[in-house]
Design a binder for these strands. Structure first.
Length: 638
RNA sequence: GCCCCGGUAGCUCAGCGGUUAGAGCGGCGGCCUCGUAAGCCGUUGGUCGCGGGUUCAAAUCCCGCCCGGGGCUCCA
């Protein structure tokens, strides 16, 4: 008997030789994980299996299997309607799945996609068994030649193993490692999300294919919820809100792509962001520096950026000398450090700069504020001794928590990129130094109690790093914080300090940014909050609406009282109705709306309306100011 | 960069060979003196992305360019 753990945690005993699927209660489980390896539910249980787990849609691997099978159903539907389509690849992805088809230059129309979706439901309804078959590679090549699937043959040619696996469902066969669900009927809700083009294997020189994206769920309800989030994300698009709320614009046709104009409201919000960042960095032991926009190209030659980064740099010539518009701040910070001899006693030294950099990003990758060509980093470089590395990483992580939580992000995903232990020669610096640094990063992550994923071989050649993705209000992940150890630049610039014995020692350098780019982070914030920026950074905090122009004077009096209390306040003196002005203020995401009329004037009060919440009732300005101050109290704790 | 789709008023969009290019919102002017998400009337907005071509005639068809959107083995 082999013990099998079900998704609900209960244990099922299955006789060896029996198929898991037959032993399972009806409708339970999608795929099995046997000693770390995923297997179809149709496999027979073997005695030597140790840990057997049945996964459902809640498990990452269960979900991926579900989507992978959905991709096959998509492909089968396409082949039924477009027999001439040649199959590419069709994996599960982070959110759903796709399948690539070569249509010989044709594209799918909207109607095509609707028909494909209908056909997919037919296939689901047929509840076809999905069979796994092993065959010799040559046999498979023969099979796919017969089926006229050149891309599959190309894939087969690259497979090393002698035996390959093929999956069949009804008339459809595909080369596939698996695993898959047992029947097509396991898919409940299936939706085609869109179509775009993609190159075969992502290479521009290869033929262009039509990629259909889709998603599926075990229930209609889950699909509806997912579609709701997509719609909500579309509605919250920072580019639309930026225009509607008059925060920024990007008149690309006239100024060029990837460049941002910050309008007064956006600029004011940004000012409060930046004030906050400077303040919190100073309080946490950083020193603020400023460095120029341009420098001789030789600086970038020395730093190595010219070699690795040339295509991204803006280069121009003056006085016969080539200059570079800075793509990074680090060389300048190093030069500040090197402006005098440093003692071990003054380390760590931490330089912070809201440094504006210019990088030529490929035109196809530009996207609103999220990917631009000129942006400001909340950049810092920490110069420390090797024995201080761990402590400094802990400090950065703690600072990150403070900053991100004040912007309203509490949930993160952490990834540690380390060297590839099989190829130590790819990296700069000795394996001993690397080991030490990696241990320091791990120690720091553990001291902070973070769960993290280690990505071996993902480190840059010059040092290991920690990347942090934050999770926003729609559950999307954004990579913002990165903490990077650098063994390269201290070497290139000979960055040293005097140790206690009076000997020169190489400094350890850390690059780190918490928000990444102010532009990008602002875009993320706008979407996270649906434009309702937190009170402390909202360009407008309060708008006063007099009931009619009889109360203009009283409104102005209230305005003055709030203004001298440093509240950002406006009065709406237009001749529209109250309802109209309230609507306008709501749409503009003004946090507090104050209505004043005869009643308030007589009582010496204001009627307070909280955006989206509605009327909070009458209070005096004093009480209102106290309430606002209370909400801004966090400033004292940073 | 490459592929597909797109660019018409400040915004959202209609018009897709045939009068002087339209609508709603916004802006402006007036009326209403108004109580918590759109009061009424009037009026102003346009190199139809840029350049070239076809045609008696081009926003409309063709070509080039610029810009935007969706993507480009989801590994970042």
């Amino acid at each position: 008997m082999v013990k099998v753990k079900l998704p609900d945690g209960s244990i099922l005993k299955v006789k060896a030789g029996r198929k898991i699927l037959e032993a399972l209660p009806k409708g339970v489980g999608l795929v099995a994980k046997v000693d770390g390896e995923l297997k179809d539910l149709s496999v027979e249980v073997r005695k030597d299996w140790k840990i057997v787990e049945i996964l459902d849609f809640e498990a990452e691997d269960g979900k991926r299997t579900y989507w992978h099978t959905s991709a096959h159903i998509l492909a089968q539907a396409v082949k039924r309607l477009f027999p001439e389509a040649k199959l590419g690849v069709g994996p599960a992805i982070e959110n759903g799945f796709y399948y690539d088809f070569d249509l010989d230059g044709k594209t799918f129309t909207k109607e095509d996609l609707e028909n494909i979706e209908k056909e997919a439901y037919n296939i689901i309804g047929e509840n076809l068994p999905i069979e796994r078959m092993e065959m010799k590679r040559e046999k498979a090549v023969e099979l796919f030649s017969k089926l006229n699937e050149p891309y599959k043959i190309e894939l087969l040619k690259e497979i090393q193993e002698e035996k390959v696996t093929i999956y069949r469902q009804g008339e459809f066969v595909d080369l596939c490692r698996g695993p898959h669900l047992p029947f097509t009927g396991y898919i409940e809700a299936f939706k085609i999300l869109g179509v775009s083009s993609a190159y075969w294997r992502g290479d521009e020189r290869n033929p262009i294919m039509q990629r259909i994206y889709g998603i599926s769920f075990p229930s209609r309800k889950q699909l509806e919820e997912y579609l709701k989030i997509i719609r909500e994300a579309r509605r919250r698009d920072h580019r639309l809100l930026g225009q509607r709320l008059d925060l920024f614009s990007m008149p690309t046709t006239i100024i060029g792509p990837g460049l941002v104009l910050w309008h007064p409201k956006g600029a004011l919000a940004r000012k409060y962001m930046e004030d906050f960042l400077r303040e919190i960095h100073i309080k946490n032991g950083y020193q603020i520096v400023y460095t120029p926009q341009i420098a001789y190209i030789d600086l970038w030659r020395k730093s190595g950026h010219l070699e690795y980064y040339k295509d991204m740099m803006y280069i121009f010539e003056k006085d016969g000398i080539k200059h570079v518009v800075k793509p990074m701040n680090c060389p300048f910070h190093i030069l500040i450090y090197k402006s005098k001899t440093r003692s071990y006693r003054e380390l760590p030294i931490r330089y912070f700069e809201l440094g504006t950099v210019s990088r030529y990003e490929r035109s196809g990758t530009l996207h609103g504020l999220l990917r631009v060509r000129n942006f400001t980093q909340d950049d810092a470089h920490i110069f420390c001794r090797e024995d201080q590395l761990e402590e400094e990483i802990v400090n950065v992580l703690t600072l990150m928590e403070k900053i991100l939580s004040i912007f309203g992000f509490k949930e993160y995903e952490v990834e540690l990129s380390t060297m590839d232990p099989d190829n130590p020669e790819k990296y700069m610096g000795s394996p001993i130094i690397w080991n030490h640094a990696q241990r320091a990063l791990i120690q720091a992550l553990e001291r902070k109690g973070y769960r993290y994923v280690e990505a071996a071989g993902e480190a840059a050649f010059y040092g290991p790093k920690i990347d942090v993705k934050l999770v926003d209000s729609l559950g999307r992940r954004w990579q913002c914080t990165t903490i990077q150890v650098d063994f390269n630049l201290p070497e290139r610039f000979n960055v040293t300090y005097m140790d206690e014995k009076g000997e020169k020692k190489k400094v350890v350098m850390i690059h780190r940014t918490i928000l990444g780019s102010i532009e990008r982070f602002f875009g993320i914030l706008v979407e996270h909050y649906n434009g309702e920026l937190p009170l402390w950074m909202n360009p407008i905090q309060v708008r006063i609406i007099p009931v009619s122009d009889r109360y203009t004077d009283y409104a102005k009096k209230i305005y003055e009282e709030l203004r001298v209390s440093n509240i950002r306040v406006e009065v709406d003196l237009g001749l529209e109705t109250v309802a109209y002005k309230v609507r306008r203020a709501e749409i503009e995401r003004v946090p507090y709306i104050l209505i004043v009329g005869r009643r308030e004037e007589e009582h010496g009060t204001i009627s307070v309306r909280r955006r989206r919440k509605g009327n909070l009732g009458e209070m005096t300005t004093k009480e209102f100011i106290r309430m606002i101050d209370e909400k801004l109290k966090w400033k004292e704790i940073i």
